[in-house]
């Protein structure tokens, strides 16, 4: 599914949020189009996770409006809110798997609560989800404590996808994974997004992820979303923070130019 900019599934306007006296976000606005993968970047503490947590309703909003799938989050009753929550999935940074449940039970947890399915179908679909995120049936009965970091993220992604949501929120999906594992995870996100027609909102620090999977990137700075656009826009931006982030020594472009300079110096 190709992104459709005229059909925003998430629409944030002049959002204000914060803790105590500090305002973390002040007047942030952002649209996420249906079927796109949007990467959200910013310095540590710039409010990337806060933005995500405010959209999904884990943090209170002090001002502005949030519309998700055409519904104003502030005006939803309990029932409508729960119905809306079924239409998104969240992957937390450390997986947040329930440690007392096995991998397959974790994936089945939302199904058990929201759907009336036979045991057989639930097992089959849960295994299917685990296989779709690249795991096999042997992990099904393992507890989160017995799984590696990469496996935990995959099981958590399978749980986020349990009810076939339309939107998936990913909080630093590749943090804590080795570069090979991270690249595989990026690929997995891209594949699943295409297969399932998902809209993905991804908070990340991983420049490789941004290059590999994101259709657009939103940059948070000065308590606002300062730019939104594809990677090409980011690379040609003049904003000092964006320049040092995308063209610094740790980025591909930066590393390449650095190498060229080093060669020239010799």
């Amino acid at each position: 599914m190709s992104p459709d900019p005229d059909d925003p599934v998430i629409s944030v306007r002049d959002l204000v949020t914060g803790f105590g006296d500090t305002r973390v976000l002040d007047g942030a606005s952002l649209d996420v189009a249906r079927g796109e993968i949007l990467g959200c970047v910013g310095a540590s503490g710039a409010g990337k996770s806060v933005l995500m947590r405010t959209i999904v309703g884990l943090l209170p909003r002090r001002g502005g409006s949030i519309r998700v799938l055409g519904q104003d989050m502030a005006r939803l009753g309990m029932g409508a809110r729960r119905a809306l929550e079924r239409r998104w999935g969240v992957l937390f940074q450390h997986g947040a798997l329930f440690s007392s449940l096995s991998a397959i039970q974790n994936v089945q947890f939302p199904m058990r609560e929201y759907l009336r399915l036979s045991r057989r179908l639930m097992d089959e679909v849960a295994v299917a989800k685990l296989e779709m995120v690249g795991l096999d049936a042997s992990v099904c009965h393992k507890r989160p404590a017995e799984l590696s970091g990469g496996m935990i993220k995959r099981v958590a992604l399978a749980r986020a996808l349990a009810l076939d949501p339309e939107i998936v929120f990913l909080d630093e999906p590749t943090s804590g994974l080795d570069p090979i594992g991270a690249a595989e995870f990026d690929l997995l996100i891209k594949t699943l997004q295409q297969t399932l027609g998902l809209t993905v909102f991804m908070v990340t620090h991983d420049l490789d992820s941004l290059h590999a999977v994101c259709d657009r990137v939103a940059v948070l700075a000065d308590r606002k979303v300062i730019t939104v656009g594809p990677m090409a826009t980011m690379l040609s931006s003049d904003h000092p923070w964006i320049r040092s982030y995308f063209r610094g020594t740790r980025s591909r472009v930066g590393a390449a130019t650095g190498a060229v300079r080093a060669v020239r110096a010799v």
């Binding site: 097992d123 089959e124 295994v127 296989e131 779709m132 096999d136 049936a137 042997s138 099904c140």
Partner: peptide
């Protein structure tokens, strides 16, 4: 999606 579903559940659940 249908192609993906074709790949899964090939080994029985232990």
């Amino acid at each position: 999606l249908v192609e993906e579903a074709r790949q899964v559940n090939r080994t029985p659940l232990p």
